[in-house]
Amino acid sequence: MPEYDSAELEPNERGRIIKSAVTPRPIAWISTTSTDGVDNLAPFSSYNYVSSAEPVVIFNTPYAEGDEQKDTPRNVLETEEFAVNVVTEPLAQTMDTTAASLEADESEFDYAEVDRAECETIEPPRVADAVVTMECTLYDSMRVRDRLAILGDVEYFHVDESVMTDGQIDAAKVDTVGRLGGPYYTVSDLIEFERQF
């Protein structure tokens, strides 16, 4: 079995291994609104939750200063609001389209023809066709080496009736899309095994 000392690998080599090993990675399709009123929408596959009873989600992005910073983190840090839209299989192609590099005054909602819906507690819109959306306010942010980690307090949930069973969200009905290493995505699919403990 090949073995590698992380310190002896190039950054892209380390990145390829970790991005291929830590999979499937959930995708946060994050909507924000700039201080100039431009709606932004972008996918982030370095995303998870860090607290559930008092829900806090986390995503990270390359760290950059000033104008080099991506629109999403800049908008979150300036407005302290964002929405996480869950990506399911019917939305995968559209989600990928919103990863395009646009100017700050252009909206990915318009570019990819994504329908907006209003949020209840924050200004940014949500993806109308997302089966789950979480409205968030900024909890904290921190630099971790070459990345900027952003944490959000989940203030409000939107859950579509189509993914509910007996009044609760049903994981078997949420066909989430995950990111694999390289250019690949995957769709969640149940296996014939149930957790015992």
Score class of each variant (00 low, 15 high):
E3V: 12
A7V: 14
E10Y: 03
P11D: 14
P11Q: 14
E13G: 12
R14Q: 12
I18C: 04
S20Q: 11
V22H: 07
T23L: 01
T23S: 13
P26R: 02
A28Q: 06
W29H: 02
W29G: 02
W29D: 02
I30G: 02
S31V: 14
T32Q: 05
S34R: 00
D36Q: 09
G37V: 12
G37L: 08
D39Q: 03
D39A: 07
P43N: 04
S46V: 04
N48Q: 09
Y49R: 09
V50Y: 09
S52C: 08
S52G: 08
S52N: 11
S52K: 08
E54V: 07
E54P: 01
P55N: 13
V57D: 15
I58G: 05
A64Q: 15
E65D: 14
D71Y: 03
D71F: 00
P73A: 07
V76K: 05
T79R: 07
T79G: 05
A83L: 04
V84M: 05
N85H: 06
N85R: 05
V87N: 07
T88M: 08
M95A: 09
A99H: 04
L102R: 05
D105R: 02
Y111E: 15
A117Q: 15
E118K: 10
E118P: 03
C119S: 15
C119W: 14
C119M: 15
E120H: 00
E120Y: 00
T121I: 00
E123V: 10
P125M: 07
P125H: 11
V127S: 12
D129T: 13
D129E: 15
A130I: 11
V131N: 10
E135R: 06
Y139R: 08
R143L: 00
R143I: 00
V144C: 05
D146F: 00
I150V: 07
L151T: 07
L151F: 10
E155H: 01
F157R: 02
H158S: 01
H158I: 02
E161V: 00
S162I: 00
V163T: 04
M164K: 00
M164V: 00
G167Q: 11
Q168R: 04
Q168G: 01
I169K: 05
D170R: 05
D170T: 08
D175Y: 02
V177T: 13
R179W: 01
L180K: 04
G182F: 12
P183V: 07
Y185T: 01
D189Q: 12
I191D: 06
R195A: 09
